[in-house]
Amino acid sequence: MAGQTEGLLNAILEDIDAGALNPGDLLDEAGLAARHNVSRTPIREALIQLEAAGLIRRLPRKGAVLFKPTLEEFLAILEVHASLEGQAAGLAARRMTPDQARALEQAVQACEAHADKKGDGDPNGYYQLNLQFHAAVAMGAGNPFLLEMIKTNARKLMAYYRARYQYPGSIAQSAREHREIAELIFAHDRSAARAKMTEHVQFDQVTVMDLLAALG
């Protein structure tokens, strides 16, 4: 049963990462049971874990829905998330191994190639490359607890970060900033890497309001 719960939980998290589940979407227990061929028990156990992580909410007469933040919640989570991402970049500048540095360089080059070849096209494809960049930085931090905290917070905001790349010029800007962050990490400039990553992850309040409106 534990294996079924873990498998189902990972499948739901993968759907969030891929954009198949978005803020406010209903997690229908009957649908999950049919799709993943599991009983209600592992489904309920998985939902308990998702609720504890703040990724779903239970609504009266509706059931479990994917977390959809208010403006105040978005800004509060974003403040924490930007700080965590910045901390990861700072630690990566001190701890990143040569193999991890090569993985980060590959992630940056993939983002740059996408921006050069596709411009504003395929924002969803770019977002997946963006996830690889941030994962490479977080892995370089050498702190598994920090990595898990970043993943959990990122999943609360993923749909909004993905929507951000619909704006003209945002992909090119993101790729440029990825290169700047990576070069600071490679130069072992811990404070500058931390500051640049924090700035990179942050949104201004007007942009947050636009994104919340765009996703209804």
Rank of each mutant, 00 (worst) to 15 (best):
D25A: 15
L26Y: 04
L27S: 01
D28A: 01
E29I: 10
E29S: 09
L32Y: 01
L32K: 04
A33Y: 12
A34L: 10
A34G: 00
A34W: 01
H36P: 04
N37I: 09
N37W: 08
S39T: 13
S39Q: 08
S39K: 06
R40D: 10
T41M: 10
P42Y: 07
I43H: 00
I43L: 11
R44V: 05
R44W: 06
E45I: 02
A46E: 04
A46K: 00
L47R: 03
L47G: 02
I48G: 04
I48Q: 14
I48Y: 07
Q49N: 11
Q49Y: 09
L50V: 01
E51A: 11
E51M: 04
A52N: 11
A52F: 07
G54N: 09
L55T: 02
I56A: 05
R57E: 01
R57Q: 03
R57S: 05
R58L: 14
L59V: 15
L59D: 07
P60S: 09
P60W: 05
P60V: 09
R61S: 14
K62D: 02
G63E: 01
A64C: 11
A64H: 14
V65D: 02
V65A: 09
L66T: 11
L71M: 06
E72G: 09
F74C: 01
F74H: 05
L75Y: 02
L78S: 04
E79V: 05
E79W: 01
H81I: 00
L84I: 02
E85V: 13
Q87G: 02
A88E: 15
G90H: 07
L91G: 00
A92C: 11
A93P: 06
R94L: 13
R95A: 08
T97A: 11
T97E: 07
P98G: 13
Q100G: 15
L104I: 13
Q106D: 13
V108H: 10
V108W: 06
Q109T: 06
Q109M: 10
E112V: 12
E112Y: 10
H114T: 12
A115P: 13
A115T: 06
K117T: 10
K117C: 07
K118A: 13
G119N: 08
G119Y: 11
G119P: 07
G121K: 07
G121S: 14
N124R: 09
G125Y: 07
G125M: 02
G125I: 10
Y126E: 08
Q128V: 08
Q128K: 09
N130C: 14
L131K: 12
Q132S: 12
F133L: 07
H134P: 03
V137C: 13
M139D: 13
G140D: 10
A141V: 12
A141D: 14
G142M: 15
N143I: 06
N143E: 14
P144Y: 07
L146M: 05
L146V: 00
L146G: 12
E148H: 14
N153E: 15
A154N: 14
R155Y: 01
K156W: 06
L157Y: 12
L157Q: 05
A159C: 03
A159N: 03
Y161V: 04
R162V: 03
R162N: 11
A163V: 00
R164V: 04
Y165Q: 00
Y167K: 10
P168L: 11
G169A: 00
I171V: 15
I171H: 08
I171A: 09
